[in-house]
Write a protein that binds this DNA or RNA. Structure first.
Lengths: 169, 169
DNA sequence: CCCTCGTGTTAGGAAAGGCTAACTTTTATA
DNA sequence: TATAAAAGTTAGCCTTTCCTAACACGAGGG
């Protein structure tokens, strides 16, 4: 398999797939709006994706994924969905942030790691009834700790990974 | 607080802190080797970090972190350690990959998410004895699934997030 | 004291990915 | 059908981060 695409190129593919799924033709303008970039950036990116054989586009027309492009787009999208689930279901990250953050992670994590995350979610969901109780317990613990409580057994110092105490009040 | 530094700049700071911790003076050459870049790249980066007030360096001499630079470097390092622990202790990611992957994540995840991950590890470690059993159960499940077993309740299709069946044999 | 060699810096350039401005093509409407 | 608006493209530029080549400093050996 060729080297991984850049985050930027993966985003273009993911966006094209997503527009297609919504039944919209993937026009330059629509891609630009979805990614919050300008049209010339899209044109440039498409030029590069065409060279790689991942999309086709008749001049001045809509963009279509090739089979290979579709495969990559689906992979990226699948990663995104798994990461979003993990962030929200396990870590309880705020809905405002899950998409943005999953979107950065999807370009960075290797398949193996995403798969393990997927299996972790799968495990929590299907394979052990006790797990739900544990996860609820974790969510409670999380709320307490985020509210300022302190675990007596733990040397976690607030601020050490970038969150100041004031941020968590 | 100012905007987040670029991944690259965070890496320079983290590396300088790490060299200092090893008792070595943070010279341009040492930083270059540690990051696998050439000396002029380091000079350029240091120029930018000096302008931001994050490092000081007498000309042709060793580099030192300012108080602010040290704070950032420590935050990045702390994120790295937490992510590495999560990847290895929870997901069982291979030791060869944990550092590389944690190193990419550390620049991408927001403080809130890293903190939640930290609390998750903390929870697993200190706050519920049953959790260990669950996690061991997960590790077993992981091994089975990675060896080709299939969860009857789960529609996980191999390959959908980029791992081909052949990769997992 | 000078010279050499390792280390640091500067100059100049490439690639990626974004931008604006200006041009071309298509579409839609009067 | 003529033409204006919308959509796409091209040209040219900026920033970041890396590179190579060439130059400058500075500590140790003759």
């Amino acid at each position: 398999m060729a080297d991984r695409l850049s985050p930027s190129m993966e985003m273009y593919l993911k966006t094209i797939l997503s527009l297609e799924k919504d039944g919209q033709p993937a026009r330059v303008q629509a891609i630009a709006s979805a990614l919050d970039v300008k049209k010339p950036s899209v044109s440039g990116a498409l030029h590069s994706l065409k060279q790689k054989g991942l999309v086709v586009q008749q001049s001045y027309g809509a963009v279509h994924l090739t089979e290979e492009g579709r495969t990559v787009a689906k992979q990226v999208t699948a990663r995104f969905e798994i990461l979003k689930r993990f962030l929200s279901e396990v870590l309880g990250v705020d809905a405002t942030n899950t998409s943005r953050e999953a979107c950065e992670l999807e370009h960075v994590l290797c398949s193996e790691t995403v798969q393990r995350l997927h299996l972790f979610l799968d495990f929590l969901e299907h394979c052990n009834l006790d797990v739900n109780a544990i996860m609820e317990h974790f969510q409670e613990y999380l709320q307490q700790r985020l509210a300022g409580g302190h675990c007596p057994n733990c040397e976690l110092k607030s601020g050490e990974c970038g969150t100041k105490p004031a941020d968590r009040a």
